[in-house]
Amino acid sequence: MKDNFSTQSDHYARYRPGYPDELFSYIAELTPGKEAAWDCGTGNGQVAGKLAAYFRQVYATDISQNQLDNAIPSPNISYSLQPAEKTSFPDKLFDLIIVAQAIHWFNFDDFYREVKRTLKQEGYLVVTGYHLLQIAEEMDALIRSFYEDVVGPYWDEERRYIDEKYQTIPFPFEEIRTPEFSLKLEWTLEHLLGYLNTWSAVKHFQKKNGYNPVDELKEGLRRAWGDQEYRTITLPLLLRIGRLR
């Protein structure tokens, strides 16, 4: 499992979007047991914080201590520094295991072996994430060009799984059909720029070239943004849900 997010963990916590409440109510309705959930690759605990409203105990793991240091606190969330592929959890502990915007970094075979060991027979594995944001036509074109042409060569190879909407990852589970979800947020331009600065490809570009490519994108976005303080940002969600066969 790669760690691309230990640096600037406070920026990650501030600018990375969460997930819609509708997704968690859907997952909670689907899951018969509510004793224990595992948020694997929790980052700053956004998903763990949502799960805490539905499950008696939430266990949240990450390989970045800096991320965990910025995580959302809750009495029923237990954070720990552990890799996805090998944990200290007992067998058949979890009613739900969820991975948000992280599974493409994992060793699939080892992680799925851990899922099958720690998931209850009637439990569910949820794999989710989000793809490229949508605002308005002119800004979407600028961001897509930035995503593909400017920082495109700097994405880790695993990023292709997100481009392929997680449809090409191995998924050795009994999969269920799911509704479509999207996340809608009201952002300022500064928040958008902060979010773009959390992209791992931006960090890789900056390390290689010695300057931040977001600075060159800023003026074009500012012109396209116009006089509005806030714009509606739409993030289409990726979602696959399965259970043990």
Score class of each variant (00 low, 15 high):
Asp3Gly: 07
Tyr166Asn: 13
Val58Ile: 12
Gln82Trp: 00
Pro32Lys: 10
Arg56His: 10
Ala100Gln: 09
Gln167Asp: 10
Leu133Arg: 08
Tyr230Pro: 13
Leu23Asn: 11
Ala100His: 10
Pro179Tyr: 15
Pro172Val: 15
Gly194Arg: 01
Asp227Ala: 14
Trp225Phe: 04
Gln101Leu: 06
Ser80Leu: 01
Tyr230Phe: 05
Lys2Asp: 10
Asp95Lys: 00
Phe24His: 09
Leu96Arg: 08
Arg223Gln: 15
Pro20Ile: 08
Phe108Gly: 04
Lys165Cys: 12
Thr118His: 10
Tyr26Cys: 13
Leu237Ile: 11
Ser9Asn: 06
Thr118Pro: 10
Leu23Gln: 06
Gly18Trp: 15
Lys218Gln: 13
Leu189Cys: 09
Glu219Thr: 06
Leu192Ala: 07
Arg223Gly: 05
Lys184Phe: 03
Tyr59Asn: 15
Ala71Lys: 08
Glu164Thr: 05
Pro90Arg: 14
Pro17Ala: 11
Glu229Asp: 03
Phe111Ala: 02
Gln134Ile: 01
Gln134Lys: 15
Ala84Gln: 01
Tyr147Ile: 02
Leu119Ser: 12
Ala136Asn: 13
Gly49Lys: 09
Asp109Leu: 10
Val47Met: 04
Arg177Glu: 12
Phe181Ala: 08
Leu196Cys: 05
Ala48Glu: 07
Phe111Glu: 11
Thr198Ile: 03
Gln121Ser: 07
Met1Val: 02
Gly43Thr: 12
Gly194Gln: 03
Leu96Asn: 08
Leu183Ile: 01
Asn209Pro: 11
Glu190Tyr: 05
Leu96Asp: 07
Asp149Gly: 04
Val99Ala: 14
Thr178Lys: 03
Tyr154Pro: 00
Arg16His: 06
Met1Phe: 01
Arg144Lys: 12
Phe55Asp: 03
Gln67His: 05
Thr42Ala: 10
Leu238Asp: 12
Glu29Tyr: 12
Leu30Gly: 09
Leu237Cys: 14
Phe171Asp: 04
Asp140Trp: 00
Arg240Met: 09
Met1Gln: 10
Phe24Pro: 13
Ser78Thr: 11
Tyr230Asp: 06
Tyr26Ala: 13
Asn70His: 13
Val126Met: 06
Gln65Gly: 04
Leu93Ala: 13
Glu190Arg: 09
Thr42His: 07
Glu29Asn: 14
Val214Glu: 15
Leu93Gly: 07
Arg245Asn: 08
Asp69Met: 07
Asn44Leu: 01
Thr7Gln: 14
Thr128Asn: 04
Arg160Ile: 11
Pro170Thr: 05
Gly123Cys: 13
Ile63Phe: 11
His131Arg: 04
Tyr54Glu: 04
Leu96His: 09
Phe111Gln: 04
Asp10Ile: 11
Leu96Trp: 01
Leu51Ala: 11
Ala53Pro: 03
Gln8Gly: 06
Gln8Phe: 13
Tyr124Gly: 15
Arg222Leu: 06
Phe146Trp: 12
Glu157Leu: 02
Gly152His: 11
Phe89Gln: 05
Glu22Lys: 14
Val47Tyr: 13
Ala102Lys: 04
Tyr166Ser: 08
Arg14Asp: 04
Phe181Leu: 12
Gln206Glu: 15
Trp225Asn: 10
Arg56Val: 02
Tyr26Pro: 03
Pro213Val: 03
Tyr130Gly: 07
Arg113His: 06
Tyr166Val: 02
Leu235His: 04
Thr178Ser: 12
Phe171Gly: 00
Trp225Gln: 14
Leu239Met: 08
Glu122Pro: 05
Val150Trp: 14
Asp149Glu: 15
Leu235Ile: 05
Lys165Pro: 00
Leu238Phe: 14
Ser6Asp: 03
